[in-house]
Computed example of a mutant assay.
Amino acid sequence: MRSFVALWPSPEVVETLDRAVRHVRRRVPEAKWTRREEWHLTLLFLGEVDGALMPGLLEALDHVLDGYPPLDLSLDGWGVFPLSAPRASVVWAGVTGEHLIGLVDGLREAARSAGVRVESRPFVPHLTLARARPPLVTERILRTLGPPPRAGWRSDRIDLVESRRVGESRYRAVRSWETSGR
């Protein structure tokens, strides 16, 4: 199963972000803009997980996430991948929040302890807004986006999500953990 651990912005933040990028979608039609229903903050990308490892992975994630406190998060500017490149293949809205790095470190360790291979690249918290092939001129897309919106939310759950390539809904929550505090 192709999967990742994620949390979702509040409906109010989605609406604020959607208003901020609505005009850009028309002005930059060469980008493939993600649907607002798909905007999420990936905490841990797992990729293809062998079904035999799934019970151990769920147990390890339970250990980290059961009773995890809510996270206070906020949008934190625009960005692109690759970082600091003249051309961008991914455009995103940054996210900031206290305890994010600690949570991600805990999730990475949990997955590794269950035998799941985890990427070691630095965590850049973001909501993916668009992808582009060929890449866009970074300066142009960031200028077109204009000033980033300011909005925040409190997380209410964290999901293990299955990513499917077909069907009406691309993402399906396999397991959810309510953020409630320890």
Results as ranks from 00 to 15, higher is better:
Glu48Leu: 14
Arg157Ser: 10
Glu37Tyr: 14
Met1Val: 09
Val137Asp: 09
Ser113Glu: 03
Pro55Asn: 01
Glu178Ile: 13
Pro148Asn: 06
Thr42Pro: 01
Val104Ala: 03
Thr128Phe: 07
Gly167Val: 05
Arg164Trp: 06
Thr179Tyr: 04
Val166Met: 12
Trp92Arg: 11
Phe81Gln: 13
Pro11Lys: 15
Asp62Ile: 04
Thr16Gln: 05
Arg133Lys: 13
Met1Leu: 11
Arg140Phe: 01
Arg143Pro: 13
Asp50Arg: 14
Ala85Gln: 15
Leu41Lys: 10
Leu46Ala: 08
Arg140Gln: 10
Gly79Leu: 12
Lys32Glu: 02
Leu57Thr: 14
Asp156Cys: 06
Ser10Pro: 03
Glu48Pro: 08
Leu61Ile: 09
Gly181Ser: 06
Glu12Thr: 00
Arg35Cys: 13
Asp72Val: 00
Pro55Glu: 03
Arg182Leu: 09
Pro125Ser: 02
Gly102Ile: 00
Phe4Ala: 03
Arg27Ser: 12
Asp156Glu: 10
Thr96Glu: 10
Val124Ala: 06
Ala31Met: 13
Asp62Ala: 12
Gly106Ala: 04
Ala132His: 11
Arg150Asp: 04
Val24Ala: 06
Gly67Leu: 01
Ser180Asp: 04
Leu127Tyr: 05
Asp156Val: 13
Trp33Asp: 15
Glu98Trp: 03
Ser120Ala: 12
Ala130Val: 14
Ala31Gln: 15
Thr144Val: 07
Tyr171Arg: 02
Ser169Val: 04
Val21Tyr: 11
Leu71Arg: 02
Thr179Val: 11
Gly94Val: 00
Leu160Arg: 06
Leu43Lys: 09
Val116Met: 04
Asp66Pro: 02
His126Leu: 00
Val80Arg: 09
Val161Cys: 02
Pro148Gly: 05
Arg108Cys: 07
Gly47Lys: 03
Arg175His: 05
Glu48His: 05
Tyr68Ile: 00
Phe123Asn: 00
Gly79Trp: 06
Ser89Gln: 10
Trp8Arg: 11
Pro55Cys: 08
Asp66Ile: 03
Ala88Phe: 05
Glu162Val: 04
Ala20Ser: 12
Ser163Arg: 13
Arg112His: 07
Pro134Lys: 14
Leu43Cys: 08
Tyr171Ala: 05
Pro29Asp: 11
Arg175Asn: 04
Asp76Leu: 13
Ala6Glu: 08
Glu15Pro: 00
Val64Ile: 08
Pro148Trp: 00
Leu57Ser: 02
Leu44Asp: 14
Val14Arg: 07
Glu139His: 08
Ser10Phe: 13
Ala130Arg: 11
Leu83Gly: 12
Val28Tyr: 14
Arg164Pro: 00
Ser155Tyr: 01
Glu48Arg: 01
Thr138Lys: 13
Val166Glu: 07
Thr128Pro: 05
Phe4Val: 08
Val118Pro: 02
Glu38Val: 11
Trp8Ile: 15
Ala31Glu: 06
Val174Asn: 05
Glu38Arg: 10
Ala110Glu: 09
Ala20Tyr: 09
Ser163Lys: 12
Ala6Cys: 06
Pro11Gly: 15
Leu17Val: 14
Leu73Ile: 05
Ala93Thr: 08
Gly106His: 01
Thr42Lys: 02
Leu160Tyr: 06
Leu61Trp: 01
Pro29Gly: 15
Glu98Asn: 08
Arg108Tyr: 01
Arg143Gln: 12
Pro69Ile: 14
Val166Lys: 07
Asp66Trp: 15
Trp153Thr: 08
Ser120Gly: 14
Pro29Gln: 14
Pro29Tyr: 15
Tyr68Ser: 01
Leu53His: 05
